[in-house]
Nucleic acid binder design. Structure first.
Lengths: 213, 213
DNA sequence: TATCTAAACGAACAGTGTTCGGTTAAGTAA
DNA sequence: TTACTTAACCGAACACTGTTCGTTTAGATA
């Protein structure tokens, strides 16, 4: 690609920059072609480097996947934390907001949502460090708010663990239905209205359910 | 493996038997090792035949996947149809039964559930016949019952399409949470009780929600 | 300026899904 | 029974894959 003479990244900053370059390009390819549609050779080509050089920065294709996820979840959880800090009002309303945040994110960046929450990482022989560390904290945020809502007497149901799980499941289920049925390969646009209408519908009943709990 | 002299399957029956053998062995391997953990060579080995011979019966690994799914969905939908026929009582109760049927199936045969509802098929260059025909009818069963419940005045909500989707999403969301959190590779058994307890919890609130609709 | 470390990478390894061409078992027709 | 045809079967090859090895050499350090 470029005819610029190549340099070597030996400082900590330069090395991190190189890693970030790989993560960025990797994400673009993964989002476009899926885990099995991406090859390390193509990635190296896109980055104008040798295939083997990639392995100076990541130990496997699978680890690259987790490096990307770690990045994305950080951003996602930051957005969630911001919502929680900025919120004024009842915890129940906050739970609604969180649900809305998920739905919004899935709508705005469906491919990324799918990669983060619904796609199996590419396989590898060995288990890498990032994979071991990988653990989405999103559910803990939710659990935290549910606990507070219970403590404040806004929710009668006392089983915070199960309840958090259940809400978590409803939200992801709502999104996954939209993903597979509206955005599937078949692109069947159904008689069910557009996404926003469906989200409004779902949120209405999530609200109702919260009030029943 | 076997030292029996090999024959050739030329009658329609013998050919179908051979195909079924491939589907059965393919399913076993896919369930155990996942879509990328299975190779056509290993499958052929397990079946004591040449790799290339597989392609007399199926046009690609991806098509084999869909052949297996078709098989499994037939059985699954048969079970669903039986429940619907045998049911006496309100449609709302039938909806609960259907939800229960899903949860039960996911619990009893989690790996198969995952393969049917949550796993991406292995990729292939060309789109095969079975892939084109592939379309799970499960949601239509649900929609049918919801429509009847609305017609019978058991449910106030008039938007049958959205409502069916929503219920569909809740059930699958409930299962997927259980799958990923209880049965993930990490095997973290949580403080949330066992699966049956969680399913009872979820069903209780699904029932409540249906009564609010 | 000399030394040393590690970034970079071409080539190779062991695997993959799939295709091609030849062999031959088995069904059909004479 | 024999001749003919056809397609089940399969070894070998093709173009790819993720990863490793050994070498080269840029660039920081002494």
């Amino acid at each position: 690609m470029s005819s610029k003479r190549k340099t070597r990244a030996r400082s900590v900053e330069a090395k991190d920059k190189q890693l970030q370059r790989i993560i960025k390009a990797g994400r673009e390819l993964f989002l476009k072609h899926g885990p099995e549609g991406v090859s390390m050779r193509k990635l190296a080509q896109k980055l104008d480097m040798g295939q083997a050089s990639l392995y100076t920065y990541i130990s496997s294709k699978r680890e690259l996947w987790f490096a990307i996820l770690k990045n994305d979840f950080s951003k996602f959880e930051l957005g969630m934390a911001e919502i929680m800090q900025a919120h004024k009002g009842s915890y129940k309303e906050l739970l609604e907001k969180i649900a809305q945040f998920y739905l919004e994110f899935a709508k705005e960046d469906g491919k990324r949502y799918k990669m983060m929450f619904q796609t199996q990482a590419p396989q590898a022989e060995k288990t890498g460090l990032l994979e071991q560390q990988y653990d989405s904290k999103s559910i803990y945020y939710l659990q935290d708010v549910v606990q507070k809502a219970v403590d404040a007497g806004e929710i009668r149901e006392k089983d915070v663990g199960k309840l958090s799980f259940f809400i978590w499941g409803i939200v992801h289920g709502t999104v996954s239905v939209v993903q597979t049925e509206f955005f599937g390969d078949k692109e069947k646009i159904p008689e069910y209205g557009n996404i926003d209408e469906y989200h409004q519908f779902a949120l209405k009943y999530i609200r109702k359910m919260l009030n029943e709990m």
